[in-house]
């Protein structure tokens, strides 16, 4: 439960309320897997669960894309190179990358808002081991064009063969020439074989529910759909009870769940 204190190597402002912090961790207790998270501690302010958004091939380089929304994450927006941050982790379940590689199925990534961050390690890994995977389709919805994360990388990713990247924003002023709409529009228009696709979904819970409806309409079995859940996390080890979601501890059994295991629970209010 004791954090490792590590100096920030690089702090990169992504958007008005989002920053990516890179930490060089000399001794991670385990290499992280795409989809896992760390508990980040800001001196005196407290801890927040933040997914790891770097490349799994570099287990010592911990990248975290953080949106400033709470008592810990707001001041983290002001963190600078050299500041020491506490890290515990990696914790939690991972995206089913091995299964995707083994089955040769296409990967359909559905990201909403900050939800692109936990999926970025998947993109890195698929591009690095390109031949092991089928097609990669990334559909990404954000609030406004100014809220889009990783803009340079989005442009680079779509240059790779077999990779499709589509964006949409909820609202835009004149000057934006991209799509204004929602992620289910992208999903409705996307071309993929429902039987040969694994969908990884990360974003606000309601956005994931809408995506699940549309995926079901397209004929993708919930057994081929994975969701990354968010709940209040304090200990990350299943002791504190805060992240309970009916039978699950989201910190330990999640955050990544196969959709068929949690879909019936998602419709129950205040569970």
């Amino acid at each position: 439960m004791l954090p490792r204190f590590i100096a920030i190597r690089r702090a990169l402002r992504e958007t008005a309320d989002t920053i990516t912090l890179e930490l060089e961790d000399p001794n991670p207790p385990a290499p992280f897997a795409a989809g896992q998270f760390n508990m980040l501690y800001l001196f005196g302010a407290g801890e927040a669960a933040i997914s790891i958004s770097g490349a799994p091939e570099r287990p010592n380089l911990l990248a975290h894309t953080i949106r400033g929304v709470g008592a810990v994450t707001m001041p983290l927006l002001r963190a600078r190179r050299g500041d020491a941050i506490g890290v515990r982790g990696p914790y939690g379940s991972a995206w089913p990358l091995q299964e995707a590689a083994r089955s040769g199925r296409d990967l359909l990534l559905l990201a909403g808002g900050i939800g692109l961050a936990p999926l970025r390690p998947v993109i890195y890994e698929v591009l690095r081991r390109r031949r092991e995977f089928g097609r990669l389709i990334v559909l990404y919805g954000a609030r406004t064009p100014q809220d889009l994360l990783y803009r340079k990388e989005l442009a680079q990713w779509r240059m790779h063969p077999g990779v499709t990247v589509k964006l949409t924003v909820d609202r835009a002023a004149a000057g934006w020439s991209g799509r204004v709409g929602v992620i289910t529009d992208l999903l409705r228009a996307a071309e993929f074989d429902p039987a040969e696709t694994i969908a990884l979904v990360c974003g606000p819970e309601v956005m994931m529910r809408f995506c699940c409806h549309e995926l079901a309409r397209r004929g993708v079995s919930p057994r081929q759909v994975y969701l990354s859940m968010e709940r209040n996390m304090k200990c990350a080890a299943g002791f504190c009870g805060h992240c309970q979601f009916s039978p699950f501890f989201v910190c330990r059994d999640g955050p990544v769940f196969r959709a068929d295991r949690i879909l019936p629970l998602l419709g129950i209010r205040e569970l």
């Binding site: 001196f43 005196g44 302010a45 407290g46 801890e47 709940r231 209040n232 304090k234 200990c235 002791f239 504190c240 009870g241 805060h242 309970q244």
Partner: peptide
Amino acid sequence: CTTVEDHTDLAAGAAERIRSWDSCYTMDFS
């Protein structure tokens, strides 16, 4: 169930993390 509180004495450069029993009946819990 437990929660944690972080205390700090910025002047002294000291911080501590306190764990205490929590209850799922509190609004803050979730």
